[in-house]
């Protein structure tokens, strides 16, 4: 369904000296610097696969998706989605794809949701009968009934996202790109959205490419993940594999009464590391460990024996940590070989 071969995108960005002087100088004379946002990636995604496309901010996720949707023309390489080259036949490609771009609405701001859907029906030339069926189904699954008469601008974030999702799937697209569809939403809405996506995939065989920072999204929706870092694919394989290798990573943040002379207690030296402190939060100590080496409870109790702990938070394993970890352990090559097709 999605075929990507040696895809690369380079941007030219103006380099500017700092301050007002730099700004004035750049009016007359500019140095350009090439930024390689995507460096020759290869992807092969089958029809009706659900793939998590993850990476840190600025890793090249959005740039890739923009090229897949036809918004951006690649610098080099080949893209084919459903047999169509998106940036050459943008309109043709557009009728087969759906998209949700995080905070940017695809709906019409001032008009009620139902009328937005009506307009989309005409834009995508959806047959009346199919439109009615689809909408009835979506209204039920996403609980849209009370929202249909309200203008988009008056909806809450969660309500808007539900409407947004329905809009992306309304024309029964073959491929749907979801860029951070659950960002900033409460748990109940997240659950509903995830089950909706799974249902669409089961029913219509929709291919889904999902980018998110929420590991829960990935675990529940995707069978496969692709991790991109600094413009290159560093992992492409099953989610189980990555979880068993890296999913045991935990981070606990401690707030200590006195953290000036903090050193990691002797007992933890073999099992945990201290993360570099963030500048704005110098008294916070973050400790990373693997749940295979030591349990969270054990670590906390050791810490409490040595220091007066004012507060602590246990963080979910973040995708950034996993990416770091892949590099850190030098697993890059090893894991890449285990591709699933």
């Amino acid at each position: 369904m999605i075929e990507v071969h040696n895809l690369a995108k380079h941007y030219k960005i103006a380099k500017r000296d700092p301050g007002l002087r730099g700004a004035v100088k750049s009016l007359f004379y500019r140095k350009y610097e090439t930024k390689e946002a995507v460096k020759g990636i290869n992807l092969h995604i089958e029809a009706s696969e659900m793939v998590g496309y993850i990476g840190a901010n600025g890793a090249g996720k959005s740039t890739t998706i923009k090229m897949l949707t036809g918004i951006l023309t690649p610098t080099s390489g080949e893209v084919k989605v459903n047999g169509i080259v998106p940036y050459e036949n943008r309109k043709q490609n557009a009728s087969h794809i759906g998209a949700v771009f995080g905070q940017r609405t695809q709906l019409f701001w001032d008009i009620p949701v139902r009328e937005s859907y009506e307009l989309l029906k005409h834009i995508y030339e959806i047959p009346q009968k199919q439109y009615e069926e689809t909408l009835a189904e979506f209204v039920e699954v996403l609980h849209l009934e009370p929202l249909l008469g309200i203008p988009v601008r008056q909806l809450s974030l969660g309500q808007k996202m539900r409407c947004e999702l329905a809009a992306a799937f309304l024309h029964r697209p073959k491929v749907v790109y979801l860029d951070e569809p659950t960002i900033g939403l409460d748990v109940a809405v997240k659950v509903r959205i995830r089950s909706f996506i799974k249902q669409m995939n089961a029913r219509y065989g929709t291919t889904v490419l999902l980018t998110t920072h929420d590991m829960q999204d990935i675990e529940e929706i995707c069978q496969r993940i692709i991790i991109i870092d600094d413009g290159s694919v560093i992992y492409d394989g099953s989610i189980q594999n990555i979880k068993s290798q890296f999913g045991d990573k935990r981070v606990i943040h401690f707030e200590l009464e006195n953290s000036d002379n903090f050193i990691l207690p002797q007992e933890l030296a073999h099992a945990a590391q201290v993360l570099p402190r963030e500048e704005e939060d110098l008294h916070k100590i973050s400790i990373t460990f693997s749940s295979r080496d030591i349990s969270g409870a054990e670590l906390i109790s050791i810490m409490m024996n040595h220091y007066t702990v004012a507060d602590l938070t246990i963080a979910d394993p973040k995708i950034e940590t996993i990416v770091e970890e892949i590099y850190g352990r030098g697993m890059k090559k090893e894991v890449q070989h285990e591709e699933v097709h």
Binding site: K66, T69, G70, I71, R90, K91, Q92, A94, S95, I97, A99, F101, R104, T105, Q106, I123, Y124, E125
Partner: peptide, 14 residues
């Protein structure tokens, strides 16, 4: 500037 133009590019109309 706000990136709203992208929306127009993924619609199957001019």
């Amino acid at each position: 500037r706000p990136g709203k133009f992208d929306r127009l590019l993924i619609r199957p109309i001019n």
